[in-house]
């Protein structure tokens, strides 16, 4: 990681704080997909550099929340701002890791090329060799610790290795915010730990705001600043100990829910039904 990039991130944050410092500002926002209301009247503020976990049952609209903040899914009401500006697709300041299963093992493209596509894959014209771009790509691959296997086809890499490459891809435009949709899903415990540590390092050391959709909060609980809970058509935001409480979640779900704490400090939410819900968007 070069000093130049750290400096740029620091300067970026400084400028931002002058202008209010809000990385995300969602105001009374609603989203409908295919005529169905996903959630409504959601208000949310995330300060630059915060680590935010987005939780909730399947199909409640967690991914939709990220897509709304990316400008991929339009709001049916309200406003959404990212770094002080109305959301739009193709914002270099935002990196995105969609929810996915693994890459096809037969996909014949190098991990390196995938990171490069994150940098200029949206451009028109024939890609010309560029030292600066190659250096930037190499720098990001080094930052996520993927240098050893970046030259191999992406499909041949393990789940954890692919996830590192995708984080490099999301950061390569100089993003100051990472939106990650279930990045720990389908990883084994060691990799879950390693990837969440990496995300925390990026958040803390490089002051990148993190919005992370998770099914299970426990691997990231120690370093989450704030929790956004999406359930029952509502979006609730607060510190983990405020939100993940029996009373709060019972109100949110509209059904009895109990939050238990195990002896090693893990949180368990029980009694919630997770009905097989309609997923309006194909993943």
């Amino acid at each position: 990681m070069s000093c130049a990039i750290i400096l740029r991130i620091l300067v970026g944050v400084a400028v931002d704080q002058k202008g209010g410092g809000m990385a995300v500002a969602l105001e009374r926002a609603s989203v409908s997909l295919g005529g169905q209301l996903v959630w409504r009247d959601a208000s949310l503020e995330v300060a630059a550099g915060e680590f935010v976990a987005i939780l909730g049952p399947n199909g409640a609209g967690k991914s939709t929340l990220l897509k709304a903040l990316l400008g991929v899914v339009p709001l049916s009401a309200g406003t959404a701002r990212v770094f002080g500006r109305t959301v739009r697709r193709g914002n270099d300041q935002v990196g995105y890791l969609p929810q996915r299963r693994r890459f096809d093992p037969d996909l014949r493209i190098r991990a390196l090329d995938l990171v490069r596509l994150g940098l200029d894959g949206d451009r028109l014209g024939v890609p010309l060799p560029s030292r600066t771009k190659e250096a930037k790509v190499g720098e990001m691959i080094e930052l996520v610790g993927a240098t050893a296997y970046a030259g191999r086809p992406i499909g041949e890499l393990s789940g954890g290795e692919q996830q590192r490459i995708l984080i490099a891809q999301a950061l390569v435009t100089g993003a100051r915010m990472l939106m990650l949709d279930e990045p720990l899903e389908s990883l084994d415990l060691n990799n879950q730990q390693a990837i969440s540590d990496l995300i925390r390092t990026i958040c803390q050391r490089h002051l990148v705001t993190v919005l992370l959709v998770a099914h299970d909060i426990n691997p990231i609980l120690p370093f989450v600043d704030r929790v956004v809970y999406v359930a029952g058509g509502h979006v609730l935001c607060g510190r983990p100990e405020e939100v993940i409480r029996t009373e709060t979640l019972t109100r949110l779900y509209g059904a009895p829910v109990e939050v238990l704490r195990t002896s090693d400090g893990r949180l368990v939410v029980v009694g919630q039904h997770e009905p097989v819900s309609y997923h309006p968007v194909d993943h």
């Binding site: 897509k67 991929v72 739009r88 697709r89 890791l97 969609p98 996909l107 994150g118 949206d122 992406i154």
Partner: peptide, 22 residues
């Protein structure tokens, strides 16, 4: 020649490509 790079992006990583404005 004009759209090839976008096409590769949209092929290997459609969700990210879409978020990037493709």
């Amino acid at each position: 020649a004009i759209f090839g790079r976008r096409l590769v992006f949209a092929t290997v990583d459609p969700d990210v490509a879409e978020a990037r404005g493709v």
